[in-house]
């Protein structure tokens, strides 16, 4: 199935878009969404394990399952420098 994913920060620069379509399987998790994103946009590979992912406006762990109607967003990892 195709899902719409809203993206933030430098990912807009990487993709040239604010929303992208990703192909995932029914019952897939947010980890699969991240994997599909990184496969399509390898420049985001370094963020793969730390990406901020929300499902229906709530940050969620990578093992959370995804349905077609869910609102998914991807943002670069939390930054920690001071």
């Amino acid at each position: 199935m195709k899902i719409a994913v809203k993206i933030f920060g430098r990912y807009k620069d990487i993709t040239g878009k604010e929303t992208i379509q990703l192909d995932i399987m029914d019952g897939n998790t947010l980890q699969d969404v991240v994997n599909a994103f990184v496969k399509q946009y390898p420049a985001a590979e370094k963020d793969k394990s730390r990406m901020m992912v929300t499902k229906n406006n709530m940050f969620a762990s990578f093992d959370t399952t995804v349905a077609k109607e869910d609102e998914i967003t991807l943002a670069p990892p939390v930054v920690s420098g001071g």
Partner: peptide
């Protein structure tokens, strides 16, 4: 909410985040 600002590319985003 969560404000994300990329000063190089001039992207300013606000994520309206709910409590978990």
């Amino acid at each position: 909410g969560l404000l994300i600002y990329d000063v190089w590319n001039q992207y300013f985003d606000i994520l309206d985040v709910k409590r978990n």
